[in-house]
Design a protein around this nucleic acid. Sequence first.
DNA 1: AACCTACTTGCAAACAATTTGCATTTGTGT
DNA 2: ACACAAATGCAAATTGTTTGCAAGTAGGTT
Lengths: 143, 143
Amino acid sequence: MKNHPEHLKTFYALFQRARLKITPARVRILEVLHHAHAPLSIQQISAELETGEVDIVTIYRTISALQKINAVKQTHLNAKERAYELAGEHHHHLVCTSCNAVEDITLNDQFEQYQKIITKKSGFKIMDHSLEFFGLCAPCQKN
Amino acid sequence: MKNHPEHLKTFYALFQRARLKITPARVRILEVLHHAHAPLSIQQISAELETGEVDIVTIYRTISALQKINAVKQTHLNAKERAYELAGEHHHHLVCTSCNAVEDITLNDQFEQYQKIITKKSGFKIMDHSLEFFGLCAPCQKN
DNA sequence: AACCTACTTGCAAACAATTTGCATTTGTGT
DNA sequence: ACACAAATGCAAATTGTTTGCAAGTAGGTT
């Protein structure tokens, strides 16, 4: 284990536990996700990287691996694409249906309440969830 | 406009407003969605119909048209597929990650509260949302 | 520091999902 | 019954995702 970016160290631990190697491609992909302000699709991750830096097949495989070790979470921002964000950065999303901007929102007590009610009513053991709001962002409401 | 199934009449109105024709294929697709107990993917809709009854391309186009006039809503129950349900039957979903069962849950005040808070905080004009919980259903918790 | 081996990668190609073009058919207002 | 725009099926194009395999590499061991 060489000199890898410091701020990703929590992920390196996950890697080691799963016997996954810390490769340049994986570090770059983690960095891209880390710097993102919203979940990214495979295509978007690919676009963030230098052309030819990482093959898109490798991105697919890396994301898949990261999901298995719970290092990334999948969300669904629109009809077309699946998008991914680093675990531990879980939040809900506001998706503007006009300009396609995506804004993160942090969950609060009110939502926890709702989840508790559902749990009680359903007998379901809830492990995770995905919530997206669709509408118009402030700027787009003026047009 | 001939003798079409009575219970779908609210949709016929939407069709006419949008100058969409009421065809056998569309009626059948609406029926399938109407009888479904959970959102269905394109493939599932296709499977519900008699073989060769409606071309899968037509299902794609029909669903797309129905979405445009807000007659169906899209949800994302799992990583692979998009699923659809009739509008007006909007609810949240409990997805069992073990047996893949999907259970509908009806939203309640608690959730409305949460949405209100988000609206106030963000300045977003929320038109719609999508919420899925993932976890283990009661039976699967025992295994 | 060189070595070994299992894990990774890129590339090509298979596969699957979704969309498009076009000739033909059909619903619906007149 | 007629006329025309809209809808359908089929084939083919496009796009998204997965798989097979030979070559390359991380990271523990000597």
